[in-house]
Every structure is written in structure tokens, then in C-alpha cells.
Simulated assay, not measured.
Amino acid sequence: MLLALIRHGQTDWNLAVRMQGRTDIPLNDTGREQALIAAAALDAAPWDAVVSSPLVRARETAEIIATTIGVPLGSTYDELIEQDFGVAEGTLVAELDTRWPLRDFAGKEPDHEVGPRGIRALERIASDHAGGRVLAVAHGTLIRHTLAEITGHDARDYPRLDNASSSLVRLTDAAWRVVTVGGVDVDEALPALDGRAEPTRLAS
């Protein structure tokens, strides 16, 4: 099975660089355009379905992609929802270190729970679409933690993923393998993650 984890398009809170988490902010016009560009950039091989997080910014991104490439719009998966940042949601990212230097936001979903939750999402999607090629629209932090859970890295080692960027994972012999990170081949990404090379910006 091949699964593309796509970060949703831009929202006004992304543009303002605010913590978003589970606050249900819609796409802005740029985000809708990014979803169209993401659809055009997908490889030509047929995809079987587009699924998503239930949050509106992810669902709308999924709807745009599904309509553009003519693929069925599938289910939402609660496990694909973004990490809950509790009281920090809505705060400018530039203010976080001053207000919460330890990032210990009240109501925050523990970091160590996010990656395993992402893996549960992959397993559910794989069960529902056995052997298929599926596009799953989710959220930047959730995607980074999920990839880190697969590769054994700290999620903080992963770069920020651009809106509408795609990271590929493949299920082979009951094990998940990361193929690309934000559009960059994993063999190029891993040296940077392991500290063996200067980190590079991983864009879609």
C-alpha cells in the first residue's frame, strides 16, 4: 500500500503564524489554490481515494484534491486530527517561548502520544483500503510525529512541512517505510535528520 500524507492548505492563522492545533480554522484563498497545486503535482498513477482529518481545513483540502483529480472522497479519521495544544491555541508562535518556555501548555496532548496515534490512523486506512493508493490530508505536527515514529527519530528533528506538501509512506510486509519527506527522497532527508549533514529546507 502507498499512502501520501498531505498537509492541509494555508489558513489565516497559518499566515499570521498562530498556533492552530484543533481549533477549526477554514482555508483561505491561498490555501485553496495550494490544494489545486498539490493535486496537479501528484504522480500520474491512479489514486483510489482521498481521506482526511475531520477538521475543516483538512476536509476542504481533501475535497478540492478529490474533485480535481476525479478520485472518490473517502472517510474522515479522528486519528488524523492535529495535536491539541490546549490554551496555547491562537497564540502567536513568536510569543510561545516567553509565555511557556517549557512548552507545557495546559490541556496539551502529550507529545509521546501523537506519533502512535498517527500510526493507528495509517493502520485503519490500510485496513479500509487494503493494497490501495490513498491520499490522506492531515496536519503538520501530526505528520511529523507519524514519520518520526516510523523512522525512530525525534519529531523535533523533522523540518516544518509546507502547506499542501506531501510525504509518502509505504506498507510492505506489515511494516511502514517512509519514502519521501515533504517531497524530498528519504535518503536525502535522513542524513540531515541524523545530523550528518546541514539541514535543508524540505519543500513540496
Rank of each mutant, 00 (worst) to 15 (best):
79 E>M: 06
85 F>W: 14
88 A>E: 00
88 A>W: 00
89 E>P: 05
89 E>C: 11
91 T>N: 06
91 T>G: 12
94 A>C: 10
95 E>Q: 10
96 L>G: 00
97 D>H: 14
97 D>W: 14
97 D>M: 09
99 R>P: 05
101 P>Q: 07
101 P>G: 15
103 R>M: 13
103 R>S: 06
108 K>S: 05
108 K>Y: 01
110 P>D: 05
111 D>E: 14
112 H>R: 13
114 V>R: 00
114 V>F: 06
118 G>N: 01
121 A>H: 03
121 A>T: 06
122 L>R: 00
123 E>C: 07
125 I>W: 02
127 S>T: 14
128 D>I: 15
131 G>Y: 09
132 G>K: 10
134 V>N: 04
135 L>E: 02
135 L>R: 00
136 A>R: 00
139 H>P: 04
139 H>M: 12
141 T>A: 12
143 I>C: 04
144 R>W: 07
145 H>Q: 05
145 H>T: 07
145 H>I: 01
147 L>P: 02
148 A>P: 03
149 E>M: 01
150 I>S: 06
151 T>M: 15
153 H>L: 11
154 D>Q: 04
154 D>P: 03
155 A>W: 13
156 R>S: 12
156 R>C: 05
159 P>G: 07
159 P>A: 13
161 L>G: 08
161 L>C: 12
162 D>L: 09
163 N>M: 13
164 A>E: 00
164 A>Q: 08
166 S>Y: 03
167 S>A: 13
169 V>H: 00
170 R>D: 12
171 L>H: 04
176 W>R: 04
178 V>I: 15
182 G>E: 08
184 V>N: 15
188 E>M: 13
188 E>T: 09
190 L>H: 13
192 A>Q: 08
192 A>T: 10
193 L>C: 06
